[in-house]
Nucleic acid binder design. Sequence first.
RNA 1: CGGGGUGUGGCUCAGUCUGGCUAGAGCGCUUGGUUCGGGACCAAGAGGUCGCAGGUUCGAAUCCUGUCACCCCGACCA
Length: 593
Amino acid sequence: MAGRPGLPTIGGAAICRGMRWTRFFIPTTKETPHDAAVPSHVLMIRAGMLRQVAAGSYAYLPLGYRSLQKVTAIIREEMNAAGAIELHMPAMQPVELWQESGRVEAMGSTLVHLPDKAFRKGTVLGPTHEEVITDIARAYVHSYKQLPINFYQIQTKFRDEPRPKSGVLRTREFLMKDAYSFDTDLAGLDVAYDKMYRAYCRVFTRCGLPFRAVEAESGPIGGDASHEFMVVTDAGEDYMVRSEDGKYAANVERAAVAPLPDSGCAGLDPLAEVHTPGRSTIDDVSRLLKCEPARMIKSIVYQHADGILMALVRGDHEVNEAKLRRVAGVKGLAPATPEQIEKTTGAKVGFAGPVKLNARVIVDQAVTVMHNAVTGANKTDYHLTGVNAGRDFVITESGDIRTAVAGDRSVDGSPLAFDKCIEIGHVFKLGTKYSDAMHAHYLDTNGKSAPFIMGCYGMGLNRIMAAAIEAFHDENGIIWPVTIAPFSVHICALDVRDEAVMGCAARLHDELEAAGVDVLLDDRDERPGVKFKDADLIGNPIRVTVGKRALADGVVEIGLRRDGEVQKIPADRAAARVRELVVELMPQAPAST
RNA sequence: CGGGGUGUGGCUCAGUCUGGCUAGAGCGCUUGGUUCGGGACCAAGAGGUCGCAGGUUCGAAUCCUGUCACCCCGACCA
């Protein structure tokens, strides 16, 4: 069984191929745990794979850990194939590294600080490892001749999430595969990024996941420098926007929208001031004036590194700060303080508007086609009606600065659809953010010192597992893709005290094990119903039933978890048939490069 | 951090409003028996400081105060 010499292994790591239920540990339950809300959480607990230890902190029981190991093995194979080099960095890190990169503040309370002791101060638990890898690179990589290089690790990350939730989808401690590429120029980064992108597609395909790569909010370099890998599921907490023609997909934080048409208007109303005492929100004013939010202009004041600006969006739209930052070409964008707002508009918060305002104004495209709008009067307790761009204020800068909503179209004109989804991977181009901050330089061909051009590539192992369950389950339990199932084959020996039955089941188990197939033999002295229910719950993809009845005809029953269809196969050909099925079930990854 | 909810054997829950015998049920577990192709049945058992700490009371799972934990919604999420 375990670690028997000569048996095939997964990913270079020994994993028990064959296992008998009575010698393993699978504490399944009938009852649904009361504090589990999403299917993956409920099913992992019921299947005896997972045990919650604290909020956002879980133990993987043997069965669950097998799946995790399968995921791990696939990732290792693909990372290695893509030329990344595995190493391992510490979870405990000196806070000084984080001070160097300037991320102590950026991470805020998410960064776990260990309590200081007299003999050891300033230790944090790594939520990610850009700082450590950059420190390693600057210590050892001194020449362009050592580049490009890509390091990766599979490590436990710690983030003190304000609110862990949805089982293992959002936890305080989780496993991540993170890779970091180092290049001498942007072209090299593009190559590294592309390699990782394709490796990610192969990993997720091999894991059997219905994923989609989408444009993500980009890193400091801008452009199309970032992609997220998403699995559509109600249990997710992100939104993916995709065009119906399938050509475009992006995170909702990123998704570009087509300009709205100008529907025109009968005539321009005169500009008028109306008293709106205490009505400082779109909702309040909308109700008071019986005016649709879509006919109002929302005016938001922001501060940035070089000053103040106002963003205008339609009342029913939201400002997208990332888009605004790009259109405005500013850094460090943040909402203005009430004091700044009052100083800029001359009114209390809630009555800002573009008319007679002496400040930089960025106008969303949707606002440029509004007529006779309502907006703040820059005078406390007053709004303006009949506001028209061109006549009442001048548009000098405009663009797409809002978040996409239902009804929007892609830039190509295809209607946009919104799907709730979970992010299982994220790749992006860092550029010199960390190498600059941490002075990580090498000597280029001219002997000149230059910062590394970096990329980083993350993947959540626990989420991959949970996403697979979210995507593949039914009312009876999990339906694993064969590649990440705890076992490929689940043998139910129905009459364990019958020598013929147990002999046949054990032979099949041994044959499959010897052939390198992961096989679980349910050899418990339980009634058939119990075994079938547990088999469905655990969800191994291929089930073989060995029972007295069928065996009297010399056959066993082989079926797939996903469709329940069963075929009777002569016992002596069962192993061969199972091996065929394993191959048939194997997801086909795109060709390696 | 704001709002809502829940803490009672390993699990799912009842009991709390209206304080009162020895704190219950189902599942699971142990033993014996009958069963045996979709979560069996009978019988006998083991197992609980009622989250924790104070308080009120002759008497607290139940009322009061505080506190902790967990879940959900929101905020947050390199």
